[in-house]
């Protein structure tokens, strides 16, 4: 039998095909990352369950309110958004043990030891007419205050900023500086 030499397939158009595929993927996919502020909503209280009086000491709560004109009111005074962060930091650290600011509790943190943890809770209330932009700006300041405190704590005890710590250390810092932000029930949905 005569030996047939198989002719080579012309591959000059492979590039075109690949380009076509490439264009398809460029058009149909996205690269954008979702960024945002993570939150955990409080669960709905059970209707059958008796409403337990959650006695939180008045000094342990700071109420942050935003009205329909996007004005900010925090801890009995009118503030600008730029002042909120320092106010919250002062509230959570209570450096001079002011009896009007939150009390601290000694807590034994696993892998770290005893540590004074603030019992302060930030309660965020808004009106239905508040703009989303103002709401996020305030949320952002609250998170910024907590993150700043976490960084300070990490630098004091581990010598690094919070983000540079490993997972176990981050957990310790999270326990030492908890992020306690409660989003109140909207005003028109049932009153307790």
């Amino acid at each position: 039998m005569a030996k047939h030499k198989t002719p080579e397939i012309n591959s000059s158009s492979t590039a075109d095909i690949a380009f076509l595929l490439l264009c398809y993927f460029l058009m149909t996919t996205t690269m954008d990352q979702d960024n945002g502020l993570s939150r955990r909503l409080p669960p709905i209280p059970d209707a059958n369950q008796k409403v337990q009086d959650q006695k939180v000491n008045r000094r342990n709560i700071i109420i942050v309110k935003i009205n329909s004109a996007d004005r900010l009111f925090a801890g009995n005074e009118i503030l600008d958004v730029s002042q909120l962060k320092d106010k919250i930091k002062l509230f959570l650290t209570n450096p001079v043990n002011d009896p009007n600011l939150p009390e601290k509790e000694e807590k034994d943190i696993e892998g770290f030891g005893p540590c004074m943890v603030s019992k302060g809770v930030i309660s965020l209330q808004n009106d239905r007419g508040t703009s989303y932009q103002a709401y996020i700006a305030v949320q952002n300041e609250l998170v910024a205050a907590v993150n700043d405190l976490r960084d300070e704590f990490s630098k004091a005890h581990f010598g690094k900023v919070y983000i540079a710590l490993d997972e176990d250390q981050q957990k310790i810092v999270r326990e030492a500086v908890p992020q306690q932000i409660s989003e109140a029930e909207p005003k028109d949905v049932g009153k307790k």
């Binding site: 979702d34 960024n35 945002g36 502020l37 939150r39 909503l41 409080p42 808004n126 703009s131 909207p186």
Partner: peptide, 29 residues
Amino acid sequence: CDSDVHMGIVSDVKQELRRCSALKIMYCA
């Protein structure tokens, strides 16, 4: 959510999510 939207509609959504116990949320920004 768009930055010009009022919180009323967002509050409604949040309440509904609480009722469905989808508690982990993220405000996109």
